[in-house]
Design a protein around this nucleic acid. Structure first.
Length: 855
RNA sequence: GCCGGAGUGGCGGAACAGGCAGACGCGACGGUCUCAAACACCGUUCCUUGCAAGAGGGUGCGGGUUCGAUCCCCGCCUCCGGCACCA
């Protein structure tokens, strides 16, 4: 099929041997695979079991960098590995095409986000093909295309109907010149705008939310999906379920207000209510302006202004000294009737619980610090069994156990803490002043973005009819093609009259479009469904296809998506299932988080840092197979790390050795004094059996390494096999059946990782054997011969007091008594024992290791 | 700061279930081939000590459990990811 004429030279040891030239074989096979449609997936073929392999689709940032290769090529190896196991593999790709960088580029350099994005996609498509990846290009999805984002709108409207979408006020980082800023657009400790330098403030805007909290409990349930434990833990912590109670505190009347306002708090520790000696409300709490005394107003306003400029990370830092301001008003502790002061402090967030807390300094670290800083009363109301019930406290006492008792708690003193807490809530609940409550750290998903380059949110505001959803038959709401940034970062849709003006679908009167667009996480929350029917015009998904192909069998992507994307995707799937659109409630059956390749400087690769590594140069020099293999060999796939091409030569040398073994098995290297002869102690028969055994043991290990994503050790084992083969090159073994079998296994095992060189060598072998061509990638994965794997003897390490002192070789079927006798008979061991008997003989793992203990 | 992860030779890493620390590769050193160099090939390479056989030390730091700890427990240090508008 390819370069036929040259192969027969291979058997002559000293004629010119054709060298491995990836530059010619790689494009050849890539073209041929495309021509044969070898990797297009027949989505309706049910003769074979399906396997949906999904890799997180890339953002079209410009060029493909080495990080993309790191993400994609091991996934492609998995796709090929599964195909060889008889699966009908679907391995699609697309582009996450909306987002901030396209707009930044447009603002900076002029031009249109669309042009910039599509140009990048074109480049990246071309580069992706040079990897030899087996993507199902026919199913490609580009999210910035109306045929995709129109269905974002359709789905949004279904969620709106289902009560899962709603509007509410929410704060954004705001620059007076450039409008809403993303987090990365706010710079410096003084938090100024990246473009104009103005100090950033918070502004409350009416924005759209999706009700992720409605699924909080279901999202905590990971049964039935095989995800890495750390990811499940991170999601669980992110959702942050807390059981407790909401309790009402009444504001006392004073000279400035009549009292009676209710401050509702959430607490996980209602048992400590008698110890609540003050209250803290978030600076954003709606009652702050009303309750603040005039003499406190200036200070409170200054504090609130300051707090609102801080980041949440900063505010929640337990490191920072506690700050706050008393507002002057006083609340009544509902159980003790005591008057307790109310503070604003930035460590209480408006977005968690009720935005107000009862502060129990004796039993909460943050409250303790605050009380110390402000000289407030710290009153112990819980004591452990071995603790004094009274006396000064030097730190908050956080009761862990059920054996903690309530003290100083009126009629509840002496009760176990957990029981007392329930009793206190039950008592207050009788008069409607408390109720048991579960709160989550998880917030509803803010999907509004004040930007042009995203999916327009399909609603209309009418002076008569209010909020009107865009009717389905008027979808998609298209982004206007011309866009004028007018030198500002503000959303151009706000100034686009043609876009803004619309007739109300209900009354026909003049109305105004929503100008917010959707968070791009919306796009990535269902794209794998769309891959299955990218051209479907009747709906976002083809139900028959999604029922057949989802959930995704294996998802691979970066761990940086542990909480946001991966949680949104789970939420979306559940919400779509509840809207009757898909069957399953979980999107990804199995997840693997690969690490990230950083720049050589250890920082994230980005154009602005100038640390982007371009793979094209490496591909030109070594070929795609070497680059693929090197990325897999560098280290464990889930680890990532700083990029360094050091060592790529070793991988290239390995492929060269594979090449040499196949095209020139009888050749001899002048550098090897032993070349051409078997090791002195070895017979041909033993060498042949040993080679076959090595091949099958390698096959056994390589198979499990692929299955467990351990590509680095998989390649190391193939290197060992190649080293073994090289020792026998040019000897009587070359050309024997065991040699041919080993070469064949080697190529098959290597094929998923290095698809081009293996295809080339495979086809040459077929041709030499006079057999018709078939692709190596359509071969069945070979089976381990269990008889070849067994070994006749085993070597057992012998320790004395835990230190390795000797090794003893015994027959594979030796009993522990045999091993003990062999060990005690060893000269070295007898010398160490010096006539004594060991105090103890430890046979670890049924005789895997022996440890003699001498006192 | 909080949540998650990681720290092993000069370097990337291996040891998957508490049982031989350093597989495999890079680099370095020595050699073969060559007029020479490159390529290729063969060998050595954790540290200290010893001619050697060997001995001692060693998996970020300090403790602990165990016959035995890179692995488990307690307390730290450093680095990476995430912290809700980067994707």
């Amino acid at each position: 099929m390819t370069k036929t004429a040259r192969t027969e030279q291979a058997s002559e040891p000293h004629t010119h041997i054709e060298r491995y030239d990836p530059g010619s074989i790689e494009p050849h096979w890539q073209a041929r695979w495309a021509e044969l449609g070898l990797h297009d997936t027949d989505l309706v073929d049910d003769a074979r079991p399906k396997y949906y392999l999904l890799t997180m689709y890339p953002y079209p940032s410009g060029d493909l960098h080495i990080g993309h290769w790191y993400i994609v090529t091991p996934s492609d190896a998995l796709a090929r590995f599964r195909r060889m196991h008889g699966y009908n593999v679907f391995f699609p790709i697309g582009f996450d095409a909306f987002g901030l960088p396209a707009e930044n580029a447009a603002i900076k350099n002029g031009g249109h986000p669309f042009t910039w994005t599509m140009h990048n996609i074109e480049t990246m498509r071309r580069q992706f093909r040079s990897m030899g990846a087996t993507f199902a290009w026919k199913n490609e999805v580009v999210t910035a295309d109306p045929s995709y984002y129109g269905w974002n709108q359709w789905l949004f409207l279904r969620f709106l109907e289902a009560g899962l979408a709603y509007r509410a006020l929410s704060a954004v980082d705001w620059c007076p010149n450039d409008g809403t800023l993303a987090r990365e657009q706010v710079e410096g400790t003084d938090r100024h705008c990246w473009r104009c330098g103005a100090l950033v403030e918070k502004r409350d805007l009416e924005q759209w939310f999706l009700r992720t909290t409605a699924y909080a409990d279901e999202l905590l349930d990971f049964s039935g999906i095989d995800w890495p434990e750390p990811i499940k833990i991170q999601q669980t912590n992110w959702i942050g379920r807390s059981e407790g109670a909401e309790i009402d505190f009444e504001v006392a009347p004073d000279d400035y207000q009549p009292g009676g306002d209710v401050l509702r708090v959430f607490t996980t520790r209602p048992d400590t209510l008698f110890g609540a000696t003050f209250m803290v409300v978030a600076p954003e709490h709606p009652l702050v302006p009303k309750l603040t005394h005039p003499d406190r107003l200036a200070e409170v306003e200054a504090y609130v202004g300051q707090a609102r400029r801080r980041t949440e990370i900063d505010r929640l830092s337990t490191d920072r000294e506690k700050t706050g301001v008393a507002i002057g008003a006083v609340a009544i502790n509902p159980v003790s009737g005591e008057r307790i002061p109310i503070f604003v402090a930035d460590y209480v967030l408006a977005t968690y619980g009720t935005g107000a807390i009862m502060a129990v300094p004796a039993h909460d670290e943050r409250d303790f610090e605050f009380a110390q800083a402000f000289g407030l009363e710290i009153r112990r109301v819980v004591a452990g069994p071995d603790e004094a019930s009274h006396g000064p406290m030097t730190a908050a006492y956080i009761a862990h156990a059920a054996d903690a008792m309530l003290v100083n708690s009126g009629p509840y003193s002496g009760m176990p803490a957990d029981e007392g807490g329930k009793a206190i809530v039950a008592w207050l609940a009788e008069t409607g002043r408390a109720e048991p409550k579960v709160t989550y750290r998880l917030r509803d998903w803010l999907v509004s973005r004040q930007r042009y380059w995203g999916t327009p949110i399909p609603v209309i505001y009418c002076p008569t009819d209010g909020l009107v959803p865009v009717p389905d038959d008027q979808l998609p709401v298209l982004l206007p093609e011309t866009v004028d940034y007018a030198g500002s970062g503000d959303n151009p849709l706000n100034h686009d009259e043609a876009f803004l003006r619309v007739d109300c679908p209900r009354c026909g009167g003049p109305a105004r479009r929503e100008t917010d667009t959707m968070d791009t996480f919306m796009d990535s929350s269902w794209y794998w469904f769309r891959y299955l029917s990218p051209d479907e015009a009747g709906g976002p998904v083809d139900r028959e296809m999604t029922d057949r192909w989802t959930p995704v069998d294996q998802y691979t992507g970066g761990a940086e998506h542990a909480v946001m994307h991966l949680l949104y995707a789970r939420f979306f799937t559940k919400a779509m299932a509840d809207c009757g659109l898909v069957r399953d409630r979980e999107p990804f059956r199995r997840l693997f988080n690969q690490g990230q390749i950083l720049g050589a400087d250890g920082e994230r690769m980005s154009k602005s840092r100038g640390n982007v590594q371009d793979p094209d140069e490496l591909v030109a020099r070594y070929g795609a197979d070497t680059v693929r293999l090197f990325l897999m060999f560098m280290g464990p796939w889930d680890q990532g790390g700083p990029w360094s091409p050091t060592g790529i030569g070793g991988v290239h040398r390995f492929l060269n050795r594979v090449w040499t073994l196949v095209v020139d098995p009888h050749g001899r290297e002048p550098g090897d004094p032993e070349a051409g002869s078997l090791p002195a102690a070895e017979t041909e028969a033993r060498a042949r059996a040993g080679l076959r055994s090595a091949a099958h043991r390698t096959l056994r290990d390589v198979t499990t390494d692929y299955e467990g994503f351990r590509f680095n050790t998989m390649i190391a084992k193939l290197m060992e096999l190649v080293n073994t083969l090289f020792r026998y090159r040019g000897t009587v073994l070359a050309g024997r059946p065991e040699w041919d079998e080993t070469i064949s296994l080697l190529l098959l095992m290597l094929a998923p990782a290095a698809p081009h060189i293996t295809e080339e060598l495979w086809s040459r072998r077929l041709e030499r054997a006079g057999r018709p061509w078939t692709s190596i990638h359509e071969q069945a994965w070979p089976e381990v011969d269990p008889n070849a794997v067994v070994e006749a003897t085993r070597e057992i390490p012998v320790q004395v007091n835990g230190k390795l002192r000797d090794k003893v070789t015994v027959p594979a079927d030796a009993t522990t008594a045999d091993i003990e006798a062999a060990v005690l008979g060893r000269e070295r061991i007898r010398a160490i024992l010096n006539g004594r008997a060991p105090d103890r003989i430890v046979m670890a793992g049924g005789g895997k290791l022996v440890n003699l203990v001498i006192r």
